[in-house]
Write a protein that binds this DNA or RNA. Structure first.
Length: 309
RNA sequence: CGCGGAGUAGAGCAGCUUGGUAGCUCGUCGGGCUCAUAACCCGGAGGUCAUGUGGUUCAAAUCCCAUCUCCGCAA
């Protein structure tokens, strides 16, 4: 079975490695063009590219697959199937139907819920109890193809998007192998998605990072862990930004105004709109390194009544 | 040359403006109190103040210059 793999971020690295380790013949890898990253705007290759090059697999980074450009490459690689994991571009119809078995995709949610760009983070942000990965036979729509297999997992009470991401990446790799084996054996039973139950997980952006302390503690908690490790929840202290990483629901008793800080010997908590508070593990103040919240407040002298905004 | 913050004890900070004895909150070690403790009391160790055998000065953590590193914004 000749395979062409398409993927870009860390999430796609595990599935690609799984293909290689299981002895599949990967004849080519598609990934996004290198992009400038960081303060110095250094041109950085996507994570998938490094893995592919290490394995000696030809890498393609076309800007567009339209107008037959993608198919042209496929003609050379001659795959039986194309595996897509978080590639980041829409595949045109002629591309989708070129390989014998078409294109299959691993998506980071339990379809038809959370179609789209940021399913994992949206699950955490919404306080979902379960997350999962789905393999599907791709069609022209956005994550609308017929479902092949689904794996579910429980989301931890304090689990961050990043942690869930890592777990689902492993599950996604296993699911991919399972799906490929089933296809090879002709043992697949595609299932249509129930479009009426579909939801869309829009991409995250920095405009949603500022915490509204008048929300209930549970909502604030979900926001902090859902935006960790990117783009990171933030609030304002002394006119400067304070990023918050990792949280858990704290004390039950009320008594504080929203945004009021409660420091104890071994915890940093903030009161929310419902009178309960959220305990934050790590913070990063503007111009400072990320550090444990307690370390930060050992050096930052709070005045009474200071509120986070 | 995109804008800005920062490097001082194991951790987090103050001190720099107006040069002149190394300070705070913790941790750590020893002792005390206590049924007990993450609590409290007493005491100790630990720093060439990022680097430059740099400049100014009687004297530099502090003023000037250069370099390195970390971080926020923007992309």
């Amino acid at each position: 079975m000749k395979i062409v793999f398409m993927g870009t971020p860390d999430f796609a690295v595990n599935p690609l490695n799984a293909l290689i380790e299981n002895g599949y013949e990967v004849t080519g890898v598609f990934t996004q063009p290198d992009k400038p990253v960081g303060r110095k705007a250094i041109l950085t290759p996507p994570p998938v590219k490094a893995v592919a090059e290490n394995a000696g697999i030809p890498v393609f980074q076309p800007n567009s697959l339209k107008d037959g450009a993608g198919v042209k490459i496929l003609e050379e690689l001659n795959p039986d199937i194309v595996v897509v994991v978080a590639y980041g571009k829409i595949l045109p119809s002629d591309f989708l139907h070129y390989p014998k078995y078409g294109c299959i995709n691993i998506h980071g949610s339990i379809l038809p819920e959370y179609r789209g760009a940021a399913p994992i983070q949206r699950c955490v942000l919404n306080g979902e109890k379960y997350a999962g990965v789905t393999s599907m036979q791709m069609d022209e729509g956005l994550d609308t193809g017929d479902m092949l297999f689904v794996e579910k997992t429980e989301i931890g009470e304090n689990e961050t998007s990043g942690e869930l991401f890592d777990r689902l990446a492993v599950m996604g790799a296993d699911l991919l192998i399972k799906t490929l084996k089933a296809i090879e054996n002709g043992d697949v039973h595609p299932k249509k998605q129930d479009d009426s139950k579909s939801t869309y997980a829009a991409m995250l952006d920095k405009s949603m990072c500022n915490i509204d302390w008048s929300n209930p503690a549970a909502v604030v908690h979900n926001t902090i862990r859902g935006l960790d490790p990117w783009p990171v929840a933030q609030t304002t202290l002394g006119g400067k930004k304070l990023k918050l990483f990792g949280s858990r629901l704290g004390c039950e008793e009320g008594g504080g105004k929203p945004g009021e800080i409660k420091l104890t010997k071994n915890s940093f908590s903030v009161f929310c709109g419902d009178g309960k508070c959220v305990t934050v593990n790590e913070v990063q103040y503007e111009g400072k390194k990320r550090m444990k919240a307690l370390d930060f407040f050992r050096g930052y002298h709070l005045e009474d009544g200071t509120l986070l905004q």
